[in-house]
Each structure stands twice: as structure tokens, then as C-alpha cells.
């Protein structure tokens, strides 16, 4: 598909599905680099930044948000059709996002409590990542995504190379940054060892445990980590909750949360 626009400049589109807009805002947050981006690409479709929506096709589409409505199902196919490269950005687009917590419950039940006329709400039973519906060229993790990684992905796609986005644990970044381990030194529960790097080990740098915003790392051993989290005093319901956040239905975190939930159910059954 020959999408290239004016003067041979690649055309960029930014799309929103079920999301909070934080990830696409990260592009606008690239204050120092924004002019370089704008010089290298034509920002053809980016409603968050401009209501002037240029027609497709596009060389690179950044897609934020999960698929949560019947309408989304149609629209993502359109986005795929008009995009030469499609990159999903953020936990909603790559893993279903925090709204995928609906998968663990009955969404109609929620709707009946929240809305006066729930029949007006057209929504799907589950919130799913973009890759569950159309082929995706690259998934950039995070809740929200990291600014430097976004620039790296855009630069890599413009240069036609593989983005440098390492899938190893947060611990590697933590040690490179010179943070002491909050688990070892303070006994603070931390998901860093099972979570993919990318944030620059932000929370541990401020003596907080990792919340797992970037989803499971390349070879997570949540079972082993959970034993230690229990040693540090985490209860079974707490263990369920730490995995059921932004990446709750990403397979390794789903299994880790489910295993803890099964245990919680057993504990409840055993209770006198």
C-alpha cells in the first residue's frame, strides 16, 4: 500500500478505542522531541491533537484502547485496512486494560446497577486486546506507555528496524538505575521480577513496589514470586488483586491471579 503523503513524508495516525487517552497523550508529552516527530512524519489523523482528520491510508497507526463494544469490532478492521503498520500502545490495547476486569464478572449485572436504561448500553462481555481481532505489527506495553519507548518505536518503524524494547524484568532496569531492591531491603511486596521493563523502574526508585503496569516479562515465574509475597505478609485476596489490575487477562498474570483466587475460595471454604 502506498500511503506516503506530501513530499514523501510518512503519514501517522493515532486511534482511540476503550481507554483513558493517557497513552496517546504521551505523544503530545514528547515536548522536546515533538517538533522532530512532526518534521519526520505527517500527523494525518490524531483527534486528540487536531480535529483536522486527514484521509487514509496511513504508514503507521498507533492504536490505543481495547475492544469493548460491537462498534469497536468494526472500526478496528477499518483501521487495519487503512494502515501499513499497526502498533498498539498501552495496556488497554495490548492486554484489554483495567476494563478487562469485567471478564471476571457479569457485565449485564454491572450495567443494571449503574445505568437507568441499561438496554441503551451496547457493550461486549469481555474487553480484549487489539491483537485478538487484527494482526498487529508491534505491541508497546505500559499503563501508561513510556515516552522514550514510544519515540524509540516510532523511530524504529520510520527506519524500518526492530524496536529496542527489551522484554526482561524490571529488576534489570532497577539495578542499572542503582535502586536498592525494595523487597529485599524493606520487605515491600513488588511485582518487578515478573514484570516487563520499560518504565525505568519508576516505582522502586521511590521505594514503592512495582505494580506490574507493563505486564508479564518474557519468562515470568509468578508461582515462585507468590511464595515470597506471602512470606512478606501478603494475604490471598491481596495476591489476587495485585495481578488483577492493568494487565489482568494477560495470560501469565491471569493464571497467577486465578491460582490465588482458587486458593482464596478454598480458604473461604475452610473457614469455620
Amino acid at each position: 500500500m502506498g500511503a506516503t503523503g506530501r513530499d514523501g513524508v510518512p503519514r501517522l495516525a493515532v486511534w482511540k478505542f476503550a481507554s483513558c487517552d493517557g497513552c496517546q497523550l504521551t505523544l503530545l508529552d514528547c515536548e522536546d522531541e515533538l517538533l522532530s516527530v512532526a518534521a519526520r512524519v505527517e500527523i494525518a489523523y490524531f483527534l486528540e491533537a487536531s480535529s483536522a482528520a486527514g484521509p487514509g491510508p496511513y504508514d503507521l497507526s498507533l492504536v490505543e484502547g481495547s475492544i469493548s463494544t460491537p462498534d469497536d469490532l468494526e472500526r478496528i478492521r477499518h483501521v487495519r485496512r487503512v494502515s501499513r503498520r499497526l502498533v498498539t500502545i498501552g495496556a488497554c490495547a495490548t492486554a484489554g486494560g483495567i476494563q478487562a476486569l469485567r471478564d471476571f464478572a457479569d457485565v449485564r449485572e454491572f450495567a443494571s446497577v449503574v445505568y437507568a436504561r441499561p438496554e441503551y448500553v451496547a457493550t461486549l462481555d469481555r474487553s480484549t486486546p487489539i491483537s485478538a481481532h487484527v494482526p498487529v505489527d508491534f505491541e508497546l506495553r505500559g499503563c501508561p506507555i513510556d515516552r522514550r519507548q514510544l519515540l524509540e518505536v516510532v523511530a524504529a518503524f520510520l527506519a524500518g528496524r526492530r524496536p529496542v524494547v527489551p522484554p526482561h524484568s524490571v529488576c534489570v532496569e532497577c539495578k542499572a538505575r542503582g535502586n536498592p531492591c525494595v523487597m529485599v531491603a524493606h520487605g515491600t511486596p513488588c511485582l518487578g521480577p515478573v514484570t516487563q521493563a520499560g518504565c525505568g523502574a519508576l516505582c522502586p526508585a521511590f521505594n514503592r513496589g512495582c505494580y506490574g503496569c507493563f505486564g508479564p516479562m518474557e519468562s515470568p515465574n509468578a508461582r515462585a514470586l507468590n511464595r515470597q509475597l506471602r512470606e512478606l505478609g501478603m494475604s490471598t485476596p491481596e495476591l489476587v488483586r495485585v495481578y488483577r489490575t492493568f494487565n489482568a487477562t494477560d495470560e501469565p498474570f491471569l493464571r497467577a491471579g486465578d491460582a490465588a483466587a482458587d486458593e482464596a475460595a478454598r480458604e473461604a471454604g475452610d473457614a469455620p
Partner: peptide, 13 residues
Amino acid sequence: ASRCLTCANCTMV
């Protein structure tokens, strides 16, 4: 391996 997190902390320190 059933206990190892493959997190790389040992090699980093």
C-alpha cells in the same frame, strides 16, 4: 528453576 524468577538480580549485583 521452579524457584528462580529469571529476573537477573543475581547477575546485576
